[in-house]
């Protein structure tokens, strides 16, 4: 076991800012990317929905 206590763990031998800063950057990037993925998916689905409604409307007009 490397750590005597939780405080010891968070201190990272005095390098806490750099170590946890790096891991925080990873968490931030993953959070941002997943948010971007979801946003892109919902706008893509909305575009398909729009096209579906448009084609349904034109089918009704043709009739």
């Amino acid at each position: 076991m490397n750590w005597a206590s939780a405080a010891d763990f968070w201190a990272m031998g005095g390098y806490g800012f750099y170590v946890w800063g790096s891991y925080a950057a990873v968490v931030a990037v993953i959070t941002i990317e997943i948010w971007l993925l979801k946003a892109r998916r919902s706008s893509a689905v909305a575009e398909v929905k729009q096209e579906t409604m448009r084609s349904a409307e034109s089918a009704i007009k043709l009739r």
């Binding site: 998916r41 729009q50 096209e51």
Partner: peptide, 20 residues
């Protein structure tokens, strides 16, 4: 992401509208 790109590009295709 590639699935979203497929939807963006195939939004006028029959199969995406069928899925919808």
């Amino acid at each position: 992401r590639v699935r979203s790109i497929v939807l963006e590009r195939e939004k006028r295709a029959e199969w995406t509208r069928e899925l919808m």
